[in-house]
Every structure is written in C-alpha cells, then in structure tokens.
Design a binder for these strands. Structure first.
Lengths: 229, 229
DNA sequence: GGGTCTCACTTACACCGTAAGTCCGCAACC
DNA sequence: GGTTGCGGACTTACGGTGTAAGTGAGACCC
C-alpha cells in the first residue's frame, strides 16, 4: 500500500542515474520555475518535492526550510543582475545601465521579483549593487556621505517603480472592462483629475515612465553641488 | 466537555453586553493590532477569532475570508492618510506634506505597512493620493501627461523608500554585533567602497535620507520645463 | 567485515483556511 | 401568549501546510 507515492521505492542498481541527485541548486531552480509558473503562493515544500520526484522532507537535507528556499530564490535573481557593464563609461550611463539591469531582471522573472522585493533587500544580497552605485557616486565627484544618500534614493526609486509596475499591472488586469470608461467607476465629483487623466492612467507606458523618473533623478544629481572631501 | 473554548456557551441574559457584538470594524481593528504586535505571519483566522473570544468560523459572517481581512487592513491604513492638509499652500509644500503623511503612517503602523505595500497598491484604495498628486501637478503648471508621470515617480520614490527603510532596519537588527566592524563581514577587496562607507551604511539617518531624496525630486520638478496645454 | 556517513524515506503533529451544517436567542407577527 | 423567521455564533470535517523525529539502504574508508 505504499506504491501510491513512489512506484518502486528505490531505483534498481542498474539505473541509479535515472533521477539526478538532489542539489541545492536544483531545488532553487525548481522553486523559481514553480513560482514563475504558478505564483509565489503555490510554492510549498511538497510541491517542490513532487516537482523533483522526491518527498518533501528530503529537501531538508539540502535546505534549512521554506524560508531558506525563498532566500535562495532572491539570491539567485539578484545574482543574475549585471551590476558592472562598463566601468569606464560616463557615470550617467552607468546609472542607466544599472537601473535597466534591475528592470530587465524584473521582466525576466516577474513573479519572483515580488518575492525578492518583499524580502530583506538590503545587506549581503545587495552588496554588489551598493558597491557599484557608490563607485559611480565617487566617479561623479560626490563626497562619501552624499554618495550613500544618492545610492539610497536611487534604490528607492528603482525598487519602488518595480513594485508599483507590478501592482498597476495586476490592478489593470482585474478591471478588464472597457478601460476608457473610468468615469463609471470613479466619482467625478470627488476625483475630477483622476477621471480627466483616465486615458493616461489606464494605459500606462511603463518603459517611458520608468525612463522619465530616472532622467529626473539623474538630472537632479547632475545639478547637485559637488563637495570636496 | 465544551467549556474549554468558552467558559459558558452563551452570556446570561442579564449581562448580554459582556462581549460586544462582532463587527467588520472590530475584526479589522483586531487584525491590525495583532499584526503590529506579532507580525503579519502571525495573522490567522483562528488567532483573530481567539483575540475576539470567538470561533474562527464566526468571522465569516462579517468577512469573506483572510484575504478580505488583509484588504481591510490596507484600506484602514490608507484611509488614515491625510492626503489634503492645506490645498492653498505652495505646491512644493503640498508634495512634502503628502510624502510625510505616508511616512507618518508607516511609522505608526510599521508592520502593517509591509502588508499595504505588498498588496495591490494601485486603484480605488489609492485614489485620494493620486487625485491629490494630480492636483498638485496641475497647480505647478504641468500638462496632464507630465503630471501623471510625476505622480508615478513620486509614488515610486515614497513607496520604495518605505520598503527600503523597513528592509534596512530589519537587516541591521539582525546584525547586532559591533556595527563599525563591517570589514570583518565584507571582503574589502571586492567591496572597497562599502567598507569605506560602513559608518554611513550601518548608522542610517532615515529622516535625513528621506528628505534628501524628496528634495532631489522636488528640485528636479521645479526645473522641469512647463508645457502649455 | 565493520564502522560511519550521506541522504531519501515514512510517520506524526500542530496548525492553517474554509465548506457545510446545527442550534439558540431575539424580534416580529398573528 | 404562541409561533415563526432569522441573524449570527457554534461545531465538525477536509485537505492542505511546515517540519521534528526516526528509519533504513547504499557508499565509502579502515
């Protein structure tokens, strides 16, 4: 009565390699694929195990628990960031490259990105990004304290945009009625500007908006007075 | 054998008011307090019910389910925002007031705020904020399309900052060793700038950093060319 | 051969969200 | 007063979750 879980309890000695061995990397990779396919709430130890043809508890030989898997997912996504494309380029272009690297990662793993964003998001995981941004700040001629603040503002804008884009996309997906008829849903007396701007609000241009805010920020940095150390 | 859940199954007729009746508002209020006290992962239907001296299933008479409770929490927090302090003030001051209203809410309900941020965060809930920001954009002389983009950049910065602050605070809390000895944890060869800026990184000045980025953004808006409609 | 280590396995437990059905006290009506 | 209807809290039950604990088979080294 045990054949419902595994056809044969162990592979025959002759074909031991029929199932590749469990690995930390394979677990994380499977988790990423599962999240991307079915969403973060579908991730469970049993699901990941089933995906790998293994019982849930077997995962604990390689991973401390579910939280550790989510940490691993966040690590893997952030490790895929190309933080240093061209160190010799102009500092403005380096900032643009860094911002777009984030955005590209979010577009390649949209559902994993919300996992990344909702986790600690500051510390050893993000060290490469911090280092790069501080380097750029120095290259642009800013004192250390200012460079740290610019780094934090930059991170806030980029992460906030990714989060906002995801929320906006989800919200627009669930109001799939005729998008220009926003006036039926929103009280024009209370929210006149919202109704008037409904076209722009309901048909967001994510690329353009992201670039707009980024250039706003870069322009502000350019104009910021340099302080000699 | 039923006395373990409730001392007496029903209050005596004489003291019917011993337990105030269950209400949507009381449920949400209890959920907020619970999240603030023990964190969002501690929220469960059974916990909320126990807090109210009621079985978990009784909550379903007033609330559609757990998700609805979390939606209610987000609604309540956002409803507490003072989106319109002084409509006659200078547009820069209105932006500052709006940003600080967000930040104040986050400081009053730090753990609920991450619930708010991780939920849809765009749509009917945030209409008052959007409306206010569009009004300010118009007052500052921007065309509608630009006002929408400014609103989106502003939201991204504010929300990103709140999220980043929470993440940073949590990360710093769990590295409670001597904070100036960052060099022991971080490889100075790979991350020289991080090590050099360790003091600023490990002792963040959240207020100052928030204001810095905000003024950066406002300054950029000031300089942005106005476009006549 | 015997010992030890690795690693997948099973069992078990406490907890979760919620579908379904029960039952009692209050209020309204004849 | 008696009857009825009903709102709302109750219990039970189901399938899911994360994971602590223990089991046993193969692989390796002495």
């Amino acid at each position: 009565m045990a054949e419902q879980t595994t056809g044969d309890t162990l592979p025959a000695a002759g074909e031991a390699a029929a199932r590749p061995p469990l690995t930390y990397g394979r677990i994380i990779h499977t988790a990423i694929a599962l999240i991307e396919r079915e969403g973060a709430q579908a991730l469970s130890m049993r699901r990941v195990g089933a995906e790998l043809g293994v019982a849930a508890m077997s995962l604990y030989n390689h991973v401390a628990g579910k939280e550790a898997i989510l940490d691993g997912v966040a690590d893997a996504i952030l490790a895929g960031l190309e933080t240093e494309a061209d160190p010799g380029a102009d500092w403005r272009d380096r900032i643009r490259a860094l911002a777009h690297a984030f955005r590209r990662a979010a577009q390649e793993h949209p559902r994993c990105m919300s996992v990344v964003l909702s986790r600690t998001m500051d510390w050893t995981r993000s060290l490469p990004v911090i280092e790069t941004m501080l380097t750029i700040g120095e290259q642009a001629g800013f004192e250390r304290r200012t460079a740290v603040r610019l780094m934090r503002a930059f991170m806030a804008y980029v992460l906030g945009t990714l989060m906002r884009e995801e929320g906006t996309a989800r919200a627009l997906r669930q109001v799939n009625l005729d998008r220009d008829r926003i006036g039926d849903l929103v009280d024009p007396a209370r929210f006149p500007h919202v109704v008037r701007a409904s076209r722009e609000l309901m048909h967001p241009d994510f690329d353009g908006e992201f670039a707009f805010g980024l250039e706003l920020l870069i322009g502000a940095m350019e104009r910021l007075p340099r302080d000699a150390c």
